[in-house]
Design a protein around this nucleic acid. Structure first.
Lengths: 146, 146
DNA sequence: CAAATTAGTCAGAGACTCTGACCAATGTCA
DNA sequence: TGACATTGGTCAGAGTCTCTGACTAATTTG
């Protein structure tokens, strides 16, 4: 290789992202949550505390509502979510986190905190803060739901 | 929502990454390269200038060699890559970029440059530099091939 | 040289995602 | 109010992606 960092910013973003994701899945699997697939997790992550509609989940996870429905079906069978009728719209149902999801989420949050600490230890408090600050600002122009 | 940024660093990394990826695929598709799939692209990205072995592609893209082989087969048919015998090892073959891939890569590189400029315009030169600097440092502990 | 390793393929199955066609409830507006 | 468009969601079918397991051939190691 030649000079310092030849990588484009996309790859630079992706590398740590994937490292974190891998850690989360590995820890979750060890703890017995080996039945969540990455595809399911991408949807599960977006379920809000008061439940979220399928269509909204689909949009945010960037899949079709059919796909989202398919994944929610599986997660429902596996005990991660529940569907409850939406009181404000008889067509809709709210996807809500069930017990198993809350428990898994607790573990996942723990891993995230752990990894963030490792990163801060490596970068130093100042650069870690700058990183989060820049990424948060970037969100304004890259996150459609910001 | 409550305070400022409640999002964990993983999500923060993923959001801009996906925004960039979406832009690349959209532009590529407009330019007639609508036959590369995301899965293929993840492998294609890793092909070095002098060709790369299937096994190495598989490792870096984090898929099995069977999967990598399957994707390379398709890209070979579509004219994106070529397989040439590895002069140093009769078992192996080198996957090399073909004409169509070079052309697509040029477009993709253009989009990346464009998006990076937009980001810099939004963040300012200083914060963009800090961002890349922090990400590059992070690579030391998150990139197995660093 | 025999044994272990490494590069890659073949076969089959499961997981993921999409398009198209639908139904039911809601919203819009003349 | 009542037709029409929109929105939330499902069903059916097909194509894509990925994995596990088993196997061949070339290379490396002791």
């Amino acid at each position: 290789m030649a000079a310092e960092s030849e990588l484009n910013t996309g790859v630079l973003l992706f590398l740590p992202y994937r490292a974190l994701e891998n850690r989360i899945f590995a820890t979750l699997a060890e703890a017995g949550y080996d039945d969540v697939t990455p595809a399911q997790a991408r949807v599960l992550q977006r379920v809000g505390p008061d439940g979220t509609r399928l269509t909204e989940l689909a949009e945010q996870a960037q899949v079709t509502k059919q796909t989202a429905g398919f994944l929610v079906d599986q997660m429902e069978k596996a005990g991660y979510v529940r569907r409850t009728p939406d009181p404000t719209d008889k067509r809709a149902r709210l996807v809500c986190l069930a017990e198993r999801a809350w428990a898994a989420k607790e573990i996942a949050d723990g891993v995230v905190a752990e990894v963030e600490q490792e990163w801060e230890a490596h970068l130093g408090k100042r650069r870690m803060k700058q990183l989060r600050e820049a990424l948060t600002a970037l969100r304004e122009i890259t996150d459609p739901w910001a």
